[in-house]
Amino acid sequence: MDNKIAYLLRQGDNALILSQRLSELCGKGPALEEDMALTNVALDLLGQTRMWYSYAAELEGAGRDEDKLAYHRDAHDFKNCLLVEQKNGNYADTMMRQFYFDTWHYFFIGALTKCGDERIREIAEKSLKEVTYHLRRSGDLIVRMGDGTPVSHAKTQAAADQLWMYTGEFFKYDAVDEAMVAAGVAPASEPLRAQWLAHVSDIFGEATLTMPSPDAWMQKGGKQGVHSEHLGYLLAEMQFLQRAYPGSEW
């Protein structure tokens, strides 16, 4: 597959899988305000998914559209990072996953607003304001939960530690990523990682949380289609209708 198409699909997969995870909390948020926020963030991510998939499908020109890409592929075809498929867990887990992702997403999308591909630049410009809002919100909540009660602090620290090993994948570039860097599309890994670490460190400082070691061992495999067991269950629910009634439409 063409590197650019593969790269676009990864971005769409990240947004779609996290959107689906957040949608699972619709009607189940810990408070009404949180419920609305989670689903609205999910909606933003779903909109961004459509922009990535549409562009990938156009370049591919093989008759697949955004719906086929979302519903007609199996787990190994999805190249999202492992972080976004992790389960919602308790609310500290949900928000820590979001905060780690939002921080990467914000600096990544920010870099893409300057990239060499006009269409990608447009998608990034459109997404940046949404992503900014997401990160401000998740950062605020991490501070409130980390610098909260002893119970909320302990749960937030546990979430930070547990999810840490899934954050290395953002910056571990493979051949597709490197080809996109060379083509002037993708931002280089190191500066992006430095920005990510600096922001996480800032927020953790205010949240009285201990940041795990940047040199810790990191999980990988999502970008290659090797996923944790959670993705299959997620897809089984998301794709149920198309699997049971192939080709059905609204």
Binding site: Y106, F107, G110, A111, T113, K114, T132, L135, R136, G139, D140, V143, P191, Q195, A198, H199, D202, I203, E206
Partner: peptide
């Protein structure tokens, strides 16, 4: 210096 501007945009 886009990088710096970006960091400022999300500083609490």
């Amino acid at each position: 210096s886009g990088a710096q501007d970006l960091a400022a945009g999300v500083r609490r």
